[in-house]
C-alpha cells in the first residue's frame, strides 16, 4: 500500500483470478502498472493476457481478487479514463470511419475533439465514404486504435494493436504510442506477440504464463537479467577451462569441442585472452554474446513446451 501511494499506480490487481468451469484462466495475478509506464504484457496464446484486460475493462467478472484503477475501487469511474482495443477491433460495419468516431465520441465524452485530425493521426484520413466493414485488417486495426484514443484517455489498454499491420504501419503505431506516452503522459498497457517491437517502446514488462504472472520487471532490469556470456574459441578447450576456472572459480563454464563459454556479465575478456595466450592456448576467437529478449521471455514463459 505504501508503495502504491508513492508510485501512483493506475492499475493494481490483487490476486485476480478467473475460472471458467474447471479451467483457471487467471491464477492470483497481482499486477502493477504505474502512471507513465508503457507496460508490455507478454505471454503465449491462451496465457491469460486478454482475459486480464477484459477483467480490467469490465467485460468479464473476476471469480476472485480485486482491481484498483487510478487508486480507486470505483472501477467504472476509472474506466471512463481508459481507451481500449481488445481482441478484434469493434465498430459498426455499415458506418464509415468518421461515423463510427462520431458515435463513440458521444460515449467517450469527446465533444469538440477533431475527429478528422484523429483519423489523419492513425492514417485513415483518406478513406472517405468507405464502410468500415470493407476495410482491410490493418485499416480496421487503425480504426480500433482511433476509437480507443477518443476522449484523450489517461490510460490505453491495447491488446495486440499491431496485429495485421504492415511494417510501415507497425512503425507508425509504435511512434504514435511513444508520442502519446512522452508528450501527453498517457500510460499504456499493451500486449503483443512481436516481442522485438514491444521491446522498442516498453518501460516495464509483465510476463504471464498459464494464467500466472511470472515476473514484473522494468526494461532496465530486463536488460541486466538477459544472460551475458563470453565465447572462447580454441582447439584446447580442457586447458582453457582450467585457466578460466582458476581466474573465475564461481562462474559457470560450458565446455564443448570448439571452446568454452563463460557465463557471466562482468568478465574481463582481455585478461582471459592474455592468460590463455601466456599458457600457450591457441585462441581463435573471443566473442561477447548477450541472449536476446526473445530467448529470455521464452524461458520465462515456460520454454517452447510450456
Amino acid at each position: 500500500m505504501n508503495e502504491n501511494r508513492q508510485t501512483n499506480y493506475v492499475i493494481t490487481t490483487d490476486n485476480l483470478t478467473k475460472v471458467y468451469g474447471k479451467k483457471t484462466v487467471l491464477d492470483h495475478v497481482s499486477m502493477h502498472v504505474a502512471q507513465g509506464d508503457i507496460y508490455g504484457f507478454i505471454g503465449k496464446n491462451g496465457a491469460g493476457k486478454t482475459t486480464l484486460m477484459k477483467l480490467l475493462l469490465g467485460m468479464s467478472q473476476p471469480t476472485e481478487g480485486k482491481i484498483e484503477l487510478f487508486g480507486s475501487h470505483q472501477l467504472n469511474l476509472g474506466r471512463a479514463k481508459i481507451g481500449a482495443l481488445i481482441e478484434a477491433p469493434a465498430f459498426y460495419q455499415n458506418c464509415t470511419a468518421y461515423e463510427n468516431l462520431q458515435r463513440f465520441a458521444i460515449l467517450a465524452n469527446a465533444k469538440g475533439q477533431d475527429l478528422h485530425a484523429l483519423l489523419d493521426f492513425v492514417g485513415l484520413g483518406n478513406v472517405g465514404k468507405k464502410k468500415a466493414g470493407q476495410f482491410s485488417l490493418g485499416m480496421k486495426q487503425r480504426l480500433g486504435i482511433a476509437i480507443a484514443m477518443l476522449g484523450n484517455p489517461e490510460l490505453l489498454v491495447l491488446d495486440e494493436p499491431i496485429n495485421g499491420l504492415d511494417p510501415e504501419g507497425i512503425k507508425e503505431i509504435r511512434d504514435l504510442l511513444l508520442r502519446l506516452n512522452r508528450e501527453q503522459g498517457v500510460t499504456i498497457l499493451v500486449s503483443s506477440h512481436l516481442l522485438d517491437e514491444l521491446a522498442k517502446i516498453t518501460t516495464r514488462y509483465g510476463i504471464i504464463n498459464n494464467g500466472r504472472l511470472v515476473e514484473e520487471t522494468t526494461a532496465t532490469e530486463l536488460m541486466q537479467n538477459c544472460q551475458h556470456k563470453l565465447q572462447v574459441l580454441t582447439d584446447q578447450p580442457k586447458q582453457a577451462e582450467k585457466i578460466i576456472k582458476k581466474m573465475y572459480p564461481q562462474v559457470p563454464l560450458l565446455v564443448s569441442e570448439s571452446g568454452v563459454e563463460v557465463i557471466a556479465e562482468d568478465i574481463d575478456s582481455g585478461a582471459i585472452n592474455r592468460a590463455l595466450v601466456l599458457d600457450g592456448v591457441n585462441v581463435r576467437g573471443l566473442t561477447a554474446i548477450t541472449d536476446n529478449m526473445e530467448d529470455y521471455f521464452i524461458q520465462r514463459m515456460g520454454g517452447n513446451n510450456g
Binding site: M59, I82, E87, A90
Partner: peptide
C-alpha cells in the same frame, strides 16, 4: 458487432 465491448470499456 462486438461494439458492446467499447461501451462497457468506457465505464
Amino acid at each position: 458487432q462486438q461494439t458492446i465491448k467499447n461501451i462497457y470499456a468506457r465505464g
